[in-house]
Simulated assay, not measured.
Amino acid sequence: MDTADEDPVVAEYDVFITPEMEEQLYVLQYLNRPPDDPFTQATGSKPDSLRLKQHSGFLEVDVPLNVHQHFNRQMGVQWGEALRKTKQFGQKAYGIASGFERTMPRLNRPGAAAADGQAAPATATNDDNYEEYVENFEDANEKGHVLNMQTFGGQIQHNDAKGPTYMLGTFRKNELHLTKLKGLVQMRTQFHHIDAIAQLEAANRRREKEAQEGAKQAEPKAFVATVKKAGGDTAAEITQAFMKATNAEKWQRLDYMDENSPQAFESFEERLFLPDTAAAAMLHSNMTNNQYLDAISAPSAGRGLKKRPSNRRQGAMVEISDDSDAGEEPTVSGKKDGDGQALNSEEMK
């Protein structure tokens, strides 16, 4: 008879938990990026910039594109120009990170004035020099007329008491050091250039409509002050308030260090390892094995059984025979509880 262990222990590690950091520690998960092709300097795809909206939790990363290989120059110019022009309108973000708000250009109107009292400058939306930019592609790329960045974005899934607690593990010899994460961010490809195209088309329609109907004279308008009712607790109102706050929140620009840079290795050693393992306090669980199993197990469904409170020690094993005839009490076969007392049929009901 083969008595070999089917699940042998191949390694043992001493587990340490590092002190909670003051910095925010997140893990960015790129769902449509193969793990053997990371965004690094070595692969020529080191992220160019990283921006964060701390309050609403949105995060975006710009990764350079290789515009010299398998690249549609004409569409690259068209999309790059759309982004450039909409940013000139004052658009700071796109999609859900902007609350789905669009900033439209200020057109020249008789009597219209900017905040400083001067006439608001007109923003050209139809200065299409696409062919020239395609012919002088290298120059156009350097001057920002080409879409040469791929944007990934997501919203931070914060670590709260309702969900699981994620920790980042780092190994050093026979030691495993665990550091608590602030949250996860699932990064997906963002199509801001498509949003910019739609926004530019809307601006052109608006300009053509005013050209046909004629610009209206800017006149002062009377208004009536009303008292807004208290509320804001419905799902629609909460979502609307969140979108409005998201659009008003400004991006925070962060520096991105390559994983092979000296700064990355220095932060890795300082923040992800417990400095003094000899003086580390022993970890003690505040749950027994059965309490832990009850906490992670799904409740039984459809049986209609309720657990009776008991003051007996945990670990009692009871076996009930279901072979009794109808109407007879179930029998208990030779099992005892933790105190050595036999259990009768009444205690099993």
Rank of each mutant, 00 (worst) to 15 (best):
53 K>T: 02
168 L>G: 03
330 P>S: 08
165 T>G: 06
36 D>M: 07
120 A>N: 04
148 N>Y: 05
244 K>L: 11
337 D>K: 02
332 V>K: 03
247 N>K: 08
203 A>I: 04
147 L>F: 05
100 F>T: 07
27 V>C: 11
22 E>L: 04
346 E>S: 12
289 N>E: 10
245 A>P: 01
4 A>C: 01
270 E>M: 04
40 T>S: 15
108 N>V: 12
29 Q>I: 12
112 A>D: 09
236 A>Q: 10
1 M>S: 11
144 G>H: 05
29 Q>N: 14
180 K>M: 06
81 E>K: 02
6 E>S: 09
222 A>L: 11
7 D>R: 10
80 G>D: 04
260 N>L: 13
197 I>G: 00
217 Q>Y: 06
221 K>P: 00
317 M>S: 08
68 H>V: 02
310 S>M: 03
32 N>E: 13
206 R>N: 13
247 N>F: 02
210 E>R: 09
169 G>N: 13
145 H>W: 11
67 V>Y: 03
202 A>R: 14
215 A>Y: 04
317 M>F: 05
62 D>V: 02
169 G>M: 13
324 S>W: 06
79 W>Q: 13
151 T>E: 09
287 M>P: 00
286 N>I: 03
209 K>A: 14
294 D>K: 13
186 Q>E: 15
232 G>E: 06
76 G>S: 04
50 L>E: 04
233 D>Q: 12
226 T>Q: 15
336 K>F: 10
284 H>N: 12
150 Q>I: 07
141 N>D: 11
92 K>R: 15
200 L>V: 06
280 A>H: 06
149 M>T: 15
38 P>A: 08
91 Q>A: 09
295 A>E: 07
284 H>Y: 12
82 A>D: 12
214 G>T: 03
201 E>F: 04
254 L>Q: 13
305 L>T: 11
344 N>F: 01
273 F>H: 11
268 F>G: 07
108 N>S: 11
283 L>P: 01
88 Q>Y: 01
332 V>R: 07
9 V>F: 03
125 T>S: 06
153 G>R: 00
297 S>N: 12
142 E>W: 00
92 K>V: 08
90 G>H: 02
119 A>V: 08
217 Q>R: 12
269 E>I: 06
294 D>W: 06
54 Q>G: 01
36 D>T: 08
257 M>F: 14
12 E>C: 05
103 T>I: 14
254 L>F: 10
231 G>I: 08
73 R>K: 15
201 E>T: 14
239 T>G: 05
331 T>V: 15
159 N>T: 14
30 Y>E: 01
304 G>S: 08
117 G>Y: 04
115 A>G: 09
124 A>R: 10
281 A>C: 00
75 M>S: 15
236 A>L: 12
223 F>E: 07
35 P>E: 13
348 M>E: 03
102 R>T: 13
102 R>D: 08
202 A>D: 14
295 A>I: 00
337 D>Y: 04
349 K>F: 05
205 R>G: 11
17 I>M: 07
332 V>N: 11
72 N>W: 05
70 H>E: 15
123 T>P: 00
294 D>L: 13
